[in-house]
Amino acid sequence: MKNGYNYFILVGCGDLGSHLAKALSRHRKSIVIIDKNEAAFNKLTADFSGFAIEGDGVEEDVLLEAEINRADVVIAVTGDDNTNIMIAQIAKVIYNVPKVVARLYEPSRGLIYEDLDIETICPTVLSMSEFSDMIALDLRQEHPQ
């Protein structure tokens, strides 16, 4: 699949972050992955071809080191919802990154930035939706809390 996004910044090298980084590497994208904890980078295997920065992704210096001002996509997938919300807003509002995605375990906080062009991935909502399809029963009307 062709797409115009070439420079990706991933914040959080957990299970999702590291998998995304490896998958994007296979598509020959430029990737910088940031994590507070250097040991997290052990999850990255040889098929990851980007850069890893040890640091706190809410710190402006760290984001600038990752050259956020020229990023096409910023993906915030740390384990902390509030950190992801803050990073996503910094990327969108201050650095005008074209595509910004945040993972939130609890989607209700996402309404803080509902007027901004930030996309939210919520594992609970996604699982509910998959599950609904599996048992052919629409469980999605009620917002999970």
Partner: peptide, 16 residues
């Protein structure tokens, strides 16, 4: 002590 938490609390309180 966690700045992202303070940001989200402030934004929820004022915006929502």
């Amino acid at each position: 002590p966690h700045d992202p938490d303070n940001l989200v609390i402030c934004q929820l309180a004022s915006k929502r």
